[in-house]
Amino acid sequence: MVNRVITGAHYGFGSWLAQRVTACAMAIYSVLFVIMLIAIRPGDYEAWHGMFVPVWMRLATILFWLSLCYHAWVGVRDIIMDYIKPTAARLVAHGLVIFALIGLAAWSVQILWRA
């Protein structure tokens, strides 16, 4: 066991686990979605839009997008931590990614639930 110095920081286990849980959720959705696409072969707007009308499909899709946002946050945060060394630049990059992903999450809700 590594001897930890208590700094008040988290040690990343929560993020690590969340990244994997969201990955599993997205993997299941992706496989089902591709199967749906190949089975239904939506050729026009009615069929395509109709795929996302049932509430369960909207919920599954929004869970996919929210999982994606969380998953991307952990992954991109890791990349930023590895390659952007100056603290100020790193924190700015973190902030931009957070805002971008919150925006993405809100947008995906709006797409699925607008009238």
Binding site: E46, H49, G75, V76, I79, L104, I111, L112
Partner: peptide, 25 residues
Amino acid sequence: GLGLFVMLWLLLWLFDRSMVSAEGY
């Protein structure tokens, strides 16, 4: 992963247009 993250907005934009109306589709 980074490439998908960067291109996500393009994909969501296409999804948005395709869902909003028949013309968008």
